[in-house]
Design a protein around this nucleic acid. Structure first.
Lengths: 172, 172
DNA sequence: ATATCATATATCAGCCTGATACGTATGTCA
DNA sequence: TGACATACGTATCAGGCTGATATATGATAT
């Protein structure tokens, strides 16, 4: 989605590769995108004059740095003010659990334990992000980053509580 | 995804339209699919002999009823035992919030309030589902339905708690 | 009568994912 | 020094899915 890219470029000029990295770190909890959509989107953003490209060489490595334009900032702000179209949770774990009656509790318990492990592995990163952001209370943007980190923290904790309850139920 | 359809057909024979309805009710919290994927998937499942089709007329209306085969049940069971590939949360609300520094707190607060409304509207359905499923404790499959409903309940409650905290932070 | 809604199937442009390909720089182990 | 792995960086593409749209009938309400 082009507005995610504009959002990231609003703060700093980036290469396509760096945009992907931001998504895989700061946004990974609630958004993702592949190179197969990032590069073509960047081209179309350049075509629409919402970003400009600057080809350069850094330590012998060719790269393209993208910078947002005023029109791009305008476009982003309009989109930000628009109501949200879709919030989607798509959990294969829950899908397999829903059909758990076709297998037995053992397989379902294994899915729950795997889910629990993944959540437990992620949670410290969210807590660390919250902790850091609470330390710098004044930079305007940080407050918004904090909100999303707090969301992740709360939700992941709820996941873990559910895991305990679900395991208890399946173990009789 | 073909295994969702097999899972639904495992319990009862259905038309494509009814499959869609199940997804929009029982599964809507954690899974969704469009007609544009359901009908072609059903065709390919028939081609692979995982389901059979039966064309009929009901009250003068033509319809096609799909029934799972033994091979289909086998296929489903294998898939259910496989580890989960992807659990994905994709919340536009969090994305817009993350970039909230570009607008102002008013727009972000509006997104939070809208999110809160949607969650509050959904929660009663999950609670009602939990309540019903807890009442019939013996039918094997219900225990698994209950797990997913409980997940939704817990998560939605965590969402609402976060909404309160987020609003407090943005209102200073 | 007629409008609206639910049932029912189907197609399709356009977008996105996951995989793959290609190439450079840096760090590391032997 | 050479060999290998990892990070950086760009790019393409088959295949799958969404959201929109089209078509048609039965049921219900006004």
């Amino acid at each position: 989605m082009d507005c995610v890219i504009l959002g990231l470029l609003c703060h700093e000029s980036l290469t396509g590769y760096e945009i992907k990295k931001r998504m895989d770190t700061a946004l990974r909890f609630f958004w993702s995108a592949s190179f197969g959509s990032i590069y073509p989107t960047l081209n179309s953003l350049v075509h629409d004059s919402l970003v400009t490209k600057f080809e350069t060489t850094d330590h012998g490595r060719d790269k393209v740095i993208y910078t947002i334009t005023d029109a791009g900032r305008e476009h982003l702000k309009k989109w930000l003010a628009l109501p949200v179209k879709k919030d989607e949770l798509r959990y294969e774990t829950l899908l397999k659990l829903f059909f758990g009656g076709e297998t037995g509790p053992d397989i379902s318990l294994e899915h729950i334990r795997n889910f629990e492990s993944r959540v437990k592995a992620e949670l410290p990163f969210l807590q660390e992000a919250s902790r850091k952001l609470k330390g710098i209370p004044d930079e305007k943007a940080h407050r918004y980053y904090l909100l999303t980190a707090m969301f992740g923290e709360r939700v992941y904790k709820a996941y873990l509580e559910w895991c305990e309850e679900a395991k208890r139920i399946l173990e009789e």
